[in-house]
């Protein structure tokens, strides 16, 4: 049996600095239980991960949450977050309820230790999932995407979301909000890459209209811009995954590239071409750009 020898400070561990309000909701949780004829039930988390929340909503004909109950498995702040959530949503319309964020839950409790923010995120997720279920939508957005953190089953979509919503800049912060990276730690590099990607995209949005795009360029200028875009925009993304790329040739709007490192062996390099390389070059150089991977004989030695 393989056990990860991760740094753990256990047993002789910290006594969290909980607020009186949080302790009150932990010791006297409100709205505990089940609603047998609930209009929407959602379940997030699982026991192996250390916390789980089951939320029951009763919704009246005015689309108001007339009753709410919960069951939770988890630490004190998970119990208190769930209790706070039920108090916040009771009597609210669905439209009001869906605007509630985890920060509202944390604020209601007078704040949570940063390491415990994921407890309030769990509350927000359960609420979103229940509302989506009631409306017949599914799955909730965070269920999509590919798993990045296998220890806690967290997807890239969910990581990108907490990064954006909470202005996160380090993998450690991401762990506090959604647990990703808090297990074996093997995905910390990927989390950093997602963070970088989110903020790069955000800064691009602000910086638009962009770098000399759609402007007339000579062939030399165009090749220079392509090279620059590859260096600045594409290589860092690929290198985060252990790959690399080289510009081989430019023929009109056709850009020929070769992959190196893990990208060279990657069965998904075709996807990388369209999803990353072509997308960037179209964005920064010209919308007419078409990217091709160099044939084997042109491939650089690995």
């Amino acid at each position: 049996m393989e056990v990860d020898l991760v740094w753990i400070i256990y047993l002789e561990a910290v006594m969290w600095n909980y607020t009186d309000k949080m302790m009150d909701h932990f010791l006297h949780p409100r709205n505990v239980g089940e609603i047998k004829d609930a209009d929407a039930v959602s379940e997030v988390g699982n026991m192996a991960c250390g916390d789980a929340l089951k939320l029951y909503l009763k919704i009246d004909k005015d689309r108001k949450i007339s009753d709410v109950k919960f069951q939770t498995f988890g630490c004190a702040s998970a119990i208190a977050s769930a209790s706070a959530l039920t108090e916040i949503v009771k009597g609210k319309t669905l439209e009001e309820a869906e605007k509630i964020t985890n920060d509202d839950i944390a604020a209601y409790l007078g704040g949570l230790p940063k390491e415990k923010m994921h407890c309030s995120v769990m509350g927000q997720e359960a609420l979103e999932a229940a509302i989506a279920k009631y409306r017949g939508e599914k799955p909730a957005p965070q269920e999509e995407g590919t798993i990045v953190c296998t220890c806690f089953g967290v997807t890239d979509t969910k990581i990108a979301r907490v990064v954006r919503e909470h202005n996160l800049t380090t993998p450690e912060q991401v762990t506090h909000y959604c647990k990703a990276g808090g297990g074996c730690g093997g995905c910390v590099g990927q989390i950093q890459a997602i963070i970088d990607e989110v903020w790069r995209k955000e800064s691009e949005k602000k910086a638009k209209p962009g770098v000399g795009k759609a402007k007339y360029m000579t062939n030399i200028q165009k090749i220079q811009l392509i090279q620059e875009t590859i260096e600045k925009e594409i290589k860092p993304t690929l290198r985060a995954d252990g790959g690399d790329i080289e510009l081989i040739d430019v023929v009109g709007n056709k850009v020929i590239v070769a992959f190196r490192g893990v990208c060279a062996e990657c069965p998904a390099s075709g996807v990388t071409i369209t999803a990353v390389v072509e997308k960037k070059l179209r964005e920064f150089v010209s919308p007419e750009i078409v990217v091709q991977e160099a044939k084997d004989e042109n491939r650089l030695p690995r």
Binding site: I8, Y10, L11, A13, V14, C75, C151, G182, G183
Partner: peptide, 9 residues
Amino acid sequence: CTSGSLEPS
């Protein structure tokens, strides 16, 4: 949950 870690003992 008693530690800063997310993994049990």
